[in-house]
Nucleic acid binder design. Structure first.
Lengths: 291, 291
DNA sequence: CATGATATCTGACTTTAGTCAGATATTCTC
DNA sequence: GAGAATATCTGACTAAAGTCAGATATCATG
């Protein structure tokens, strides 16, 4: 019996290796080598640029070329030169290719549904999977500047508000807080960042331009699955860089005592506590940072 | 943005596929094809029967034979006929093979340590990995009858007591409870079962023989990572079968109101509530079941 | 102890994956 | 517009994985 951290990690690794192998096996059931199946799936998932498929699947150019040719012969994909650069090629699925892709999707989905349905607490299992996936994909988390009114941004804000409602003693109602109007978080006045892990939004932060001589940091949120990865700091650093770009020389923020991790992070990254600078009912702590 | 259960599962699957692939790549760094590396690792982990290696790695007999021959030529393994059956062969690592196995282990361990050290809350990540692994390995959970004084049994009992201490209002102290002496949970008087998931103990239950005309079910525990898999029911069913074997015609148990999942499970599987039948200070509920 | 089943081995294959050096067409840069 | 860089393609390979039909030795069973 060995229950040290490394043994537990490796038990996990063995378990998922079996699972991955089983999925590969079921893919082979469609009578096509794995390499070709992977290309169909990449194209189906929207990766159409041949060079990008090659990069993602780590394929030699010769091998890629032959896989494309064989899929073309099967009538599953069609290739055309890239509109902007005739050296490149793009691939898209034909109708038959779409059907084949759907069949692969069905295999994957069936495995997922079976496992989830067999578990007595699917949400708990999924939360664990989210956490593990975020940790494994740690280095691939991408920060993107987005419109705060976009779906992804609004999803993050919704999760943020839900969490505040849970953590604040008296709950939280956005309407009582000074809700920054969206345009204050769009260039040139401000900005809004969303962090994506394999296309799942896992964090956000906003820079709100004000009429005063400072800008404010608002809505810093990290998904539970992505905590412990240093993402808050990364978002703040990027936001500060954007603020500098916009000519901001002083940043301020307010926060609540129910968020001690955030407060500790601010203190450790150059923020100093100041007097209350607004009359918002929720915050207990106020910070500023010169840029 | 797609956050339905199946999409979340599949994000997880993509993340671990990358991780598994990366480990395979690092294994190739030792200048040996993956097939051969897998055999070394299987033998190193104690799977010595050639037929069993073949079954686990799903290898054709011809392929297996050639892999063994090439590893023998490299001086990494030695094969001998199986002591009980001269048709079979067993493989073991030579000193050089042990060294090579250790090198593979070091590669795996390094990956594990790196990922764990990068995470801000390693225990939370490991708990998630345990949960996912237990779910994926669901069908491979093995029940073994063991001595309640063995390391594995005592680990389970320790976790069980810790959990009671957390969940009971006034804590829990084994000494105040009627601690069944171990021999009462060993045949022919009783029995003790431990559930293993890939050699990790994830549950237990004891059958305690008494001087009265009934036996008692004691110490039913399921590891947090293995909850929701129907394991409690499986343990109870096996224990009831053993009780019947031992000629027991009536089972009793007591439990505490802080364990509602267990109480619900008893009610759903043929147990009926009865009057208090002992003076143990902890239980609030008493059940029996005729066999 | 004959018969059928089992486990491994050998030889002769095929398929899949991966590598590499040039050929071709296009784009970028000075 | 010449020359370097880029993306793909083709041909000629090698390595690895997988398949399959027998051969051999042993075991299990009546």
């Amino acid at each position: 019996m060995s229950l040290d951290p490394v043994s537990r990690f490796r038990r996990f690794a063995r378990a998922v290796t079996v699972e991955v192998g089983a999925l590969d096996q079921s893919f082979l059931g469609r009578g096509r080598p794995l390499g070709a199946a992977r290309v169909i799936n990449a194209v189906g998932r929207g990766i159409q640029d041949v060079a990008e498929i090659r990069a993602r699947l780590d394929l030699d150019s010769g091998l890629m070329s032959r896989l494309l040719r064989s899929l073309e012969d099967e009538g599953l994909i069609a290739t055309e030169p890239h509109p902007d650069d005739a050296r490149r090629r793009t691939a898209r699925l034909t109708a038959a290719g779409e059907a084949e892709f759907a069949a692969y999707e069905a295999l994957s989905n069936a495995r997922a549904e079976k496992l989830l349905s067999q578990h007595g607490d699917g949400e708990r299992l999924l939360a664990a999977m989210d956490l593990v996936a975020s940790a494994l994909l740690r280095e691939r988390i991408e920060l993107r500047e987005m419109d705060p009114r976009s779906d992804d941004a609004r999803y993050c804000l919704g999760e943020y508000y839900d969490e505040l409602a849970q953590r604040f003693e008296g709950g939280f109602d956005v309407k009582l807080s000074k809700d920054p109007d969206a345009t204050a978080m769009i260039r040139p006045r401000g900005a809004f960042l969303v962090a994506f892990s394999d296309e799942m939004p896992v964090g956000c932060v906003g820079l709100k331009g004000t009429s005063a001589d400072y800008s404010e940091v608002k809505r810093l949120w990290i998904a539970p699955s992505a905590r412990g990865l240093g993402l808050a700091r990364r978002l703040m650093e990027r936001l500060e860089a954007i603020a500098r770009e916009l000519g901001v020389s002083l940043l301020r923020l307010d926060t609540n005592k129910a968020l001690p991790e955030a407060i500790a992070m601010y203190r450790k990254s150059g923020w100093t506590e100041i007097e209350r600078f607004n009359d918002d009912p929720y915050p207990d702590f106020f910070f500023e940072k010169p840029l």
